[in-house]
Structures are given as structure tokens and as C-alpha cells.
Amino acid sequence: MIEKEIVELIRAKDKAFVALIYDNYSANLYGVVKAILRDDDLAQDVLQDSFVKIWRNAEQYDEKRSKLFTWLLRICRNTAIDKLRSLNKQSGAEIHKEYSNVYIDENLSGKEAVDNLTKVLAKLNCKYREVLIAIYFRGLTQVEVSEDLDIPLGTVKTRLRIGLRELKEALADSMTMLLLILIAV
């Protein structure tokens, strides 16, 4: 019901939709942004930036293509990733993270998902694993991976595709896969 009401407000160009989105979804969005950035102040700035983007781009939301929350989360996630990449660039290099150290709240049952993910990644062929880790844990773009690993861009795309497929086959639930793509950058 709320989603329908929000969409109607968006179509009516009534700015009240922003408050409604905030009151209904901000905690879920902020949790994800915090998990990506691991910094409360940054996460608050990114949430603020994201809501400005939501306001500016509201008319582009297409309810036939995705649920409202999916659309909101894409904006917040992309804004958080952009912020992280810009900070890494400012600091001179990307931060190398151990994939076993993906930040997860203690109260999140996804901790098991991360453990599971760690085991599955370790079993993957190293040429697929290194591409997955470079993209999802070091935050590199496909072009940067190509330069970093000194392999053609087409090979990066193929290895990413096969790596994701093998990962999906090995992971029993889609939640773990989503978690990987969602926050492990």
C-alpha cells in the first residue's frame, strides 16, 4: 500500500514522497550504506546525497521494471560505492581487504553467509577468484582489473561471468550471492 501511495505521489510531483520514503525505508537503506562504508558520518552524508538523487530522478522510476525498494537501493549502493572509490583515489591507492573480513553487523544472520562465501571462494579456480575479488572486494572496475591483472578486458568479462556462475552453483541460497554483490566492495 505504502509503495503504491509513494508512486502516486511521485507521479503527482508531490515532494511529500521523500518524507514517506524516508520514514519507511531509511533504516534499511542506511544499514546497507553503513555496511559498505563502515563509517557513520560518511554513511549519513551518502544517505543525504542519495535522497537528493532520489528526488532529482524520481520521474525515472519505472514500477514495471522493479519494486520501489530495489530502485532506491540501487541509488544508495551506487552512491556509496562512488564515494568509496573517490576516497580510495584521494588516499592514493585502493585498500586491500581480506574477503573474510567483510563487515557484517553481529546481529545479522548473514555472518554465516559470509563464512559460507569465504569457503566457496577458496574452492574456486584462482583465475576466476582473482577477478571476483578484484571487483567485489577491492572495488576495481572491469577496466582497472584488466590493467591490474594484465589481461584483456574481454577475458575479465568472461572470467567474471564464469566466476559468478560457479559461485552461484556452489552457494545454496541466493541471499549469500546478493550479499556478495551488495556490500562486498
Binding site: 533504516a27 534499511n28 542506511y30 544499514g31 546497507v32 554513511a43 557484517i104 553487523d105 545479522l108
Partner: peptide
Amino acid sequence: AQKMAAVP
């Protein structure tokens, strides 16, 4: 996302 929720 609900499992990860945090109130700003």
C-alpha cells in the same frame, strides 16, 4: 536489507 537495518 531488513536484517542489516540501522536507524540513522
